[in-house]
Structure formats: structure tokens, C-alpha cells
Amino acid sequence: MEHLEVAYPYFGAFVMLALTVVAFIATTIISRFVGRYLARKDTEKLKLTIYECGPEATKQPNRISPQFYLFALLFILFDVEIIFMFPWAVDFKPLSWFGFVEMVLFILLLAIGFIYAWKKGALEWHSIK
């Protein structure tokens, strides 16, 4: 299959973005409008509170495990690595041994950091005490 020569290759993506944003926001607005007239309404106070087992909910303290943040930090480390590796992978054959050795060194450096995080227990799952 051949490529077509096109002046603005990303034109379609922008049109799709605009169209879908308008279409899906319109969908929610229309369904809100339809629901206002057709849905059964009763003004029970507890109906509008959050999902709980009955009592009227107050604002709750939102505590989540610090583990989640650790994984997010690790992700940043490795995702930046991958962004570096994409252009390298595409030009792998021209770069040959030079590129290969460079990338192995780079991966080794990251592996040291990864092993450190592993040994420190960053990849284990701790429960909130």
C-alpha cells in the first residue's frame, strides 16, 4: 500500500477532536434535558448524597496509600527512558554497534536505579497502618 502525498496530514485529527468534543458534550446536555422531563423525580435528600450505606455523608478525609505516588514517580523515570528509545529503535540499523552499545549502557544505568528501588521495597505493596 502506498502513501498519499497530503499537504496537511493532521487536519483529520483536529477535525475529529472538535467534532467529538461537540458531539459528546451535546450528548450529555441532551440526555440531561430529556431526563429532566421524562425521568421520575422525587426530592429525597439522601438521593443526592454520595454512595454510602445510608447515613448522611459529610466531607470525607481522602486518604490513599503513598504507594500510589511511588509508582507514579517510577513511571516518570521509565517513560522518559522509552521516549529516548523510540528514535533510537527507528534508526537502529544505520546506527549499528555504536547505537547498540550506547543504549545498553543507558539501560544499565537505569537498571541500577531500578534494582535500587526494588531492593528498597518500592515495588512491594504496603498496607496503610
Binding site: G35, L38, T49
Partner: peptide, 9 residues
């Protein structure tokens, strides 16, 4: 589509 649109308080 016809469900009531609930936004919790």
C-alpha cells in the same frame, strides 16, 4: 438517555 442526571452534592 431517559435516566435522571444525578450529580452528587
Amino acid at each position: 438517555f431517559t435516566k435522571e442526571d444525578i450529580i452528587p452534592t
